[in-house]
Design a protein around this nucleic acid. Structure first.
Length: 112
DNA sequence: TCTATGACTCCGG
DNA sequence: CCCGGAGCCATAG
């Protein structure tokens, strides 16, 4: 019985590995989990992550860099505020220069 | 047990 | 280039 037993926990573990000032996409996380098509599950897991400050859900966006999940935060602008606070430029609910801030979770997974 | 849903992604028109 | 529909998988009701 490990923290990795649950799909949610796996998502949380990766989300926690996202470096400060970096972001990633649901699909990238899902791919590392072994199910590239379960990007929706990643988002669903993040929905359950509410209340876990250890999980920077604001660093997870869709593959377009759009803050699709900002609506689920306490404040409508909270997600954007958090990203900008980390130095991530956000314009019109979308991350500017996404590839510049993008972080690939598979790299860390490979090191393990 | 089965159905519906969803913070996604890809493909086609 | 922009818009719409289908696929996919796990959780909750």
């Amino acid at each position: 019985m490990s923290t990795n037993d649950n799909f949610f926990e796996r998502v949380y573990e990766i989300a926690r590995q996202i470096p400060y000032g970096k972001v990633t996409s649901y699909g990238a996380i899902a791919k590392v989990l072994g199910s590239a098509r379960s990007a929706r599950m990643v988002g669903w897991a993040m929905n359950s992550c509410h209340g876990r400050e250890d999980i920077p859900a604001h660093r997870v966006v869709n593959r377009n860099g759009l803050l699709t999940g900002k609506h689920h935060f306490d404040g409508i602008n909270l997600m954007q505020q958090l990203l900008e606070n980390e130095g991530v430029a956000v314009k019109n609910n979308q991350i500017v220069n996404l590839e510049h801030y993008f972080w690939n979770p598979s790299e860390v997974k490979s090191q393990e």
